[in-house]
């Protein structure tokens, strides 16, 4: 079966908790890479720190497990060093939007050809369930025992505002849709951003929903809707899924290479 071909199987079973959505996202990403027919030697996966960031260790690509929040900064160096490589950056919500928020908006602004995947489970899992910038108001965490009062980021709006030229959102319930978005995002020439809503049964679920991983997944079916669906008008609370932005814009690494060529002609 195709998925196993891309795994460093000796590290399995992976370390994520039972029912954690991160494995589902990893599987969809592998299927997208398989569908695109990318050569393993042409893929670099760069991550930061957190549950999400353990993904590269399981993948048989060039893998770079970096510092908390800094994956996109490392990835920028990789992409500039060898622009022909496909650079994919899986991140967690805290990793991407708290400690790494600055790098996220600037990678988006530059429109550098990197695929950023934010696995948003609304919590810091690796450290044991603290609030993140995407923890909803009133949700409980170990650092918000009485309920969170910090307003949450809408990561799609954040990426759009920062100038990402491809912005999409899916969930772990919508495996095929997620896979299709990864395919489009990796194919996109420019900075692509995919938010995947995912479940953390251990730390978010236990404190807030008290339900099984399956029930947490199923919730994504009822709390989200496709972009443009009439359901959104009936219930404005619904979170939209789909491709929000897909624009052609000058890509950073290639325009730098163009500049080099022009400078060399002038000499």
């Amino acid at each position: 079966m195709p998925v196993k071909r891309y795994l460093r199987q000796r590290f399995f079973p992976q370390l994520w908790c039972a029912g954690c959505g991160h494995g589902q996202i990893m599987a969809s990403l592998i299927r997208a890479i398989e569908e695109l027919g990318l050569q393993k030697n042409n893929v670099v996966v760069v991550s930061g720190i957190g549950c999400s960031s353990r993904m590269p260790g399981y993948l048989d690509f060039h893998t770079l497990h970096t510092l908390h929040g800094r994956a996109l900064a490392f990835a920028t160096g990789v992409k500039m060093g060898r622009p022909e490589l496909n650079v994919i950056v899986p991140m967690g919500d805290g990793d991407a939007s708290a400690i790494g928020g600055n790098h996220l908006i600037h990678a988006a602004r530059r429109n550098i050809n990197i695929t950023a995947i934010v696995m948003n489970n609304n919590i810091y899992g690796m450290t044991g369930g603290q609030s993140s910038p995407t923890t909803p108001v009133a949700a409980k965490s170990t650092t918000a025992p009485l309920g969170n009062i910090d307003p949450a980021f809408d990561l799609v709006e954040l990426a759009k505002g920062a100038g990402a030229s491809f912005v999409a959102r899916s969930t772990t319930y919508h495996s095929k849709e997620m896979q299709n978005m990864f395919v489009k995002a990796i194919n996109h020439k420019g900075f692509s951003f995919v938010e995947v809503l995912t479940q953390c049964p251990t730390y978010y679920g236990r404190k807030n929903e008290g339900v099984s991983p399956t029930e947490m997944m199923k919730k994504f079916a009822t709390t989200t809707t496709s972009i443009g669906s009439p359901k959104k008008k009936e219930n404005p609370e619904l979170i939209e899924r789909g491709v929000f932005v897909d624009q052609e814009r000058t890509e950073y690494a290639s325009s730098y290479c163009e500049m080099i060529n022009q400078m060399r002609k002038q000499k």
């Binding site: 900064a73 490392f74 990789v78 600037h106």
Partner: peptide, 27 residues
């Protein structure tokens, strides 16, 4: 760039240090 190399102004010094490590790994 005149010699075919690359320069990038990053968003801060943290990112600068990270970027040179990333690029170093590409050779």
């Amino acid at each position: 760039p005149a010699r075919g190399g690359k320069f990038i102004q990053m968003e801060d010094e943290i990112a600068s240090m990270c970027a040179i490590i990333g690029a170093a790994l590409t050779g």
